[in-house]
Design a binder for these strands. Structure first.
Lengths: 242, 242
DNA sequence: CTAGCTAAATGAATGGCATTCATTTAGTGG
DNA sequence: CCACTAAATGAATGCCATTCATTTAGCTAG
């Protein structure tokens, strides 16, 4: 089961010297932890387009087909990555402090983690938690937090699902291009929308100095929308408590 | 420019008799409307996995490479489909009636449309509205509705974005498998979550008779979470009005 | 009227991708 | 020590989006 750091160490160094000959090696080269780590590194370096079975194999200094002794399909690799990322979501607020603040901390960190990994969102949506221990652990902590805060039993899952839906959608929003709302040549025929876009970007731009690069401008707009929706959900859902 | 229904009519019949010889045909076979219609039909028959450039070409009785005279890449086909779907979203509530009801009607129909087309959600998130007239038209109507309801100019776009984020995330939730929250063998180590899952499915199952097939059970749970979050957002965001 | 330009089709590549299969080798349990 | 299983290689497969050379049709300038 272990031998993790061995696989890791090998994969980090840029290439082993001589070819490995065919046949089972004395010490196993691959395991799930090593595959997960290599996939994460590959994604951070080349993005999800660069995450191919061939590239993953190369990073682990292995033939592509070797991966299939450990995962049934590429989807399994994504699943491993996804479950690892869930362990990065901050649920510490549910251990102490108010329910509202716990939800805020959790939701912001959840969004931030997956904003950098939006291609995984479709995977999560379909992924039975059975195969994802970290994910399950997160749900347990959050559920307990809701329960302790006085939520009725039947309302916990719907409330979490509503928050998660908002979080996933908002993660996409973070990645949207800066000019997403530029109506271009049709601006004349969409006066209300054009005006609304203009004044909302002016408003978020005003909070920091003007003449900003513009790249973080999108981030600030995404943050504003997220804050707005999150506060609405926190107060609306919080009313369910007894 | 038109000749739409011609292309349409041809594409619907299952295959033309003899090969078309090389070279430009007297009447154009393809146009964007025909491509869009064929793509939609293909998706409804075979799903998004079945939407390949080759299959699309076959449905239109054309060589795959011919498509590239009308779209620059497959992404453009998805964009055409996406924009068409936006015209199916019900914004009629914003013409008359209360803001709350208009948002409810809009949000439910928006979610329902894209629940059947979740692979497009990543496309929308990155799509500048410039190239999507129907999408732009929807935003215009919704913006006007918010403005007329007394929203401050700077708050309109953030509010719409927050709602959309929730809608997209919820669309994914609709497609989740029935057993998504089945914790399986780890149930013992996640007592709070397991209990919450049990009682939430019992609660939604109780509204209709028991012993249901289970397939619509997921739909009812998704609806419950969506209703919960939507009502929270409607009341939270509605407070911004002057 | 015709020469040339552009648009719209075919058909034959190309390269990348996930996945499979036959084969080889190493350890393990009876 | 023998069979079995696990874990690697390397070669092949089939699908997919995309490109390119080529062909043909219609329009337009001179």
């Amino acid at each position: 089961m272990p031998a993790v750091s061995a696989a890791q160490g090998r994969s980090t160094s840029t290439a082993a010297g001589q070819r490995r000959r065919a046949g089972r090696p004395s010490a196993a080269v691959l395991d799930k932890a090593g595959i997960t780590a290599a996939a994460l590194e590959l994604v951070s370096r080349k993005g999800y387009d660069g995450l191919t079975m061939a590239a993953l194999a190369k990073m682990l200094d292995v033939a592509p087909s070797a991966l299939y002794n450990h995962v049934a399909a590429k989807q399994d690799v994504l699943l491993l990555v996804e479950d690892h990322l869930m362990s990065l979501v901050n649920v510490s607020g549910f251990e102490a402090g108010s329910w509202e603040d716990a939800v805020r901390t959790w939701a912001w960190s959840y969004r931030d983690v997956f904003a950098a990994h939006t291609p995984l969102i479709p995977v999560i949506a379909v992924l039975p938690v059975t195969d994802a221990p970290q994910t399950l652990a997160m749900y347990e902590t959050v559920s307990k937090g809701f329960s302790d805060a006085g939520f009725p039993q039947e309302g916990i899952v719907p409330a979490i699902v509503a928050l998660e839906s908002f979080i996933f959608g908002s993660a996409y929003d973070v990645t949207a291009p800066e000019d997403i709302f530029e109506s271009g040549s049709m601006a004349d025929s969409t006066p209300h929308f054009t005006a609304a876009v203009r004044s909302s970007s002016a408003a978020s731009g005003a909070s920091a100095g003007i003449g900003e690069p513009g790249r973080q401008e999108r981030g600030r707009q995404a943050d504003a929308a997220f804050r707005l929706g999150l506060e609405a959900l926190v107060s609306g859902l919080g009313a369910l408590r007894s």
